[in-house]
């Protein structure tokens, strides 16, 4: 029988398995799945934000005086937020049910990956690579390009909004992963949408300036990665001034991403050791 190169010297090979290679191999599953489901996600990832733009941005926007949104037209105001919201909505697709299902025989992704040379951290990184890198850079890019036809950008810097969306995704994804990995009951998955995805999408300064919210809710806005991302994206698409220096917004997103990753790594290692 022809021997496979990898099984020849498995000790050496597997021991050297770098995070990058491990993540890439685990990503293979997400990619194969994506080829089956991509058409089902086009609505949420591309059409829904566009429909929001038409209904709210233009429809409701026609009743709004630009003075209320810092001199921007309402469509200009919400466009960057919509791009970043897509990242959050995609996480709702990719980091909730698929994570929970990974540990169960009906989904089983993580369980069968676990019986291969992949380590729990590789399984985590593979899934994150899909949700945080692949998804935002495809979906958010498409949305950003379509929104350009609405004439809501002031310069080519608008392209950076996609990077901001990626930042939002990176900051939020590991936390969702850790949360959904800890859930014992699938009935609780709804609460992830209800108490995380939805409030974050609606109250992060996407549809109205966050300062409008009552003072006691302001801290919730500050912790929301979508708010930080939207501030950055709005600076990119409309040249608006950010609430904090851009570096501060960026630093927060990076800190959240790193902290979340360490947490998620601990949780998945625990869940996949029996």
């Amino acid at each position: 029988m022809a021997t496979l190169a990898e099984t020849e010297a498995p000790q050496a090979k597997a021991a050297e398995l770098s995070y990058l290679v491990g993540a890439w191999r685990a990503f293979g599953l997400q990619w194969a799945l994506y080829r089956h489901i991509w058409n089902g996600t086009v609505f949420t990832s591309v059409f829904l934000p566009i429909l929001y733009m038409i209904s709210i941005g233009i429809g409701v926007g026609s009743y709004i005086d630009p003075g209320a949104t810092g001199g921007l037209t309402y469509a200009e105001f919400i466009a960057p937020g919509l791009i970043c919201s897509v990242a959050v909505m995609m996480l709702g697709n990719d980091m909730v049910y698929p994570v929970f299902g990974g540990y169960h025989e009906w989904g089983g992704g993580y369980l069968h990956q676990r019986s291969t040379p992949l380590r729990p951290v590789d399984i985590l990184n593979g899934h994150l690579a899909y949700a945080v890198i692949f998804r935002p850079f495809t979906s958010c890019t498409v949305v950003a390009i379509v929104l350009a036809f609405f004439g809501v950008y002031t310069s080519w810097w608008a392209a950076l909004a996609v990077i901001a969306a990626f930042g939002v995704s990176a900051a939020l994804a590991p936390w969702l992963h850790a949360w959904c990995s800890s859930l014992k009951n699938d009935a609780m998955l709804n609460s992830v949408y209800r108490f995380a995805i939805m409030p974050i999408s609606l109250f992060s300064g996407v549809f109205f300036p966050a300062e409008q919210m009552p003072g006691f809710l302001q801290p919730l806005v500050w912790i929301s990665p979508l708010w930080h991302g939207t501030e950055l994206a709005r600076a990119a698409t409309a040249g608006a001034a950010t609430a904090l220096p851009p570096v501060a917004h960026l630093a927060y997103l990076v800190a959240l991403a790193i902290g979340g990753w360490f947490l998620a790594r601990r949780v998945i290692a625990r869940r996949l050791s029996f």
């Binding site: 409701v60 709004i64 609606l202 109250f203 109205f208």
Partner: peptide, 15 residues
């Protein structure tokens, strides 16, 4: 209720 607060009150204040 989240939608009510976001669109009714949040966006409502702009309109």
């Amino acid at each position: 209720l989240l939608f009510l607060f976001a669109f009714g009150f949040g966006v409502g204040a702009l309109v």
